[in-house]
């Protein structure tokens, strides 16, 4: 198959089924390096299923997912993570009892090599790697404005802080492709702005982003292209402006209301 060299992710004809239910039906998508692609659609449209397929949690029935030209279907989640694909979860209470700093440091797992024995005895690479990881983590802590929760377990954080930590964790992983599952849901305007900045920073670092989001302002502002799913099928794809004008999208997703009218 002929592809431009800068295509990072290419999904073709992806289908996923649970018994009789077709969660994904022939979905295709491709992303160039540094692009942000939003996936929108009503609840149950298959957005999270798509992410779960890419990260290896679900095994699709048909189709292929190429990451940097390599088919990743059938690989285990940790093997996919090792290729540099990070994701956030919709419910940000991912590691309920871990402290903010520990979560971000755990995000550096793939960038460290300390062995079991070195870890137990704290010699060899252990100290140097800890300090190097901490250096990077602290940059992210400062940028994500989560200084307050370094030593606070997730369950004691506010919902907004959990969302911030979740994105900071994926940033700490230093991935090439990031899948964000509704990073703005449940946040107030101020927190949305903070998360927005985090995503913009990832864009500036030339990280490819697949963004699932219901907040249309964020989708408009952040994405290069938008893909619309409904009942597991891709019903539209285009620039944010094109999508907002699309009749079919308005019907399926916005309930007949156009974006402009809703905003006014």
């Amino acid at each position: 198959m002929d592809q431009p060299a800068d295509i990072i992710l290419a999904i073709e004809n992806l289908s996923l089924g649970f018994r009789g239910l077709k969660a994904l039906d022939g979905v295709g998508l491709s992303a160039r390096k540094g692009e942000t692609i939003s996936v929108i659609g009503p609840n149950g449209a298959g957005k999270t299923c798509l992410i779960n397929c890419i990260t290896g949690y679900y095994r699709p029935r048909e189709g292929c997912i190429l990451y940097r030209g390599r088919n990743i279907i059938g690989m285990k989640p940790h093997q996919i993570a090792r290729l540099g694909i990070g994701r956030t979860f919709q419910d940000p209470t991912t590691f309920p009892h871990m402290k903010g700093l520990d979560i971000l440091m755990a995000g550096r797992y793939l960038h460290t090599r300390t062995s079991l024995l070195e870890g137990l005895l704290f010699f060899g690479r252990s100290r140097a790697e800890e300090l190097a990881s901490r250096q990077r983590v602290e940059e992210i802590v400062a940028f994500a404005r989560i200084e307050e929760v370094r030593k606070v377990p997730v369950l004691a954080m506010t919902y907004g802080q959990r969302k911030q930590v979740e994105i900071a964790r994926v940033m700490a992983m230093g991935p090439g492709l990031v899948l964000l599952d509704e990073p703005m849901s449940g946040l107030d305007e101020f927190m949305k702005e903070v998360v927005n900045e985090l995503i913009l920073d990832m864009r500036q670092r030339n990280i490819t982003i697949i963004l699932i989001e219901h907040d249309m302002r964020a989708v408009m502002e952040l994405s290069d292209r938008v893909v619309v799913l409904d009942h597991g099928k891709k019903i539209a794809e285009g620039t944010p402006t094109e999508i907002m004008r699309d009749e079919q999208v308005a019907e399926a997703y916005l309930g007949g209301l156009s974006y402009e009218r809703e905003a006014a």
């Binding site: 990260t55 285990k76 989640p77 993570a81 991912t94 797992y109």
Partner: peptide, 19 residues
């Protein structure tokens, strides 16, 4: 930290690259 992560959430831990 890998231990803590799998204690809290095995699935999410895998996405950190932890086997």
């Amino acid at each position: 930290r890998a231990f803590l992560a799998i204690r809290d959430n095995e699935d999410a831990a895998a996405n950190l690259g932890i086997s």
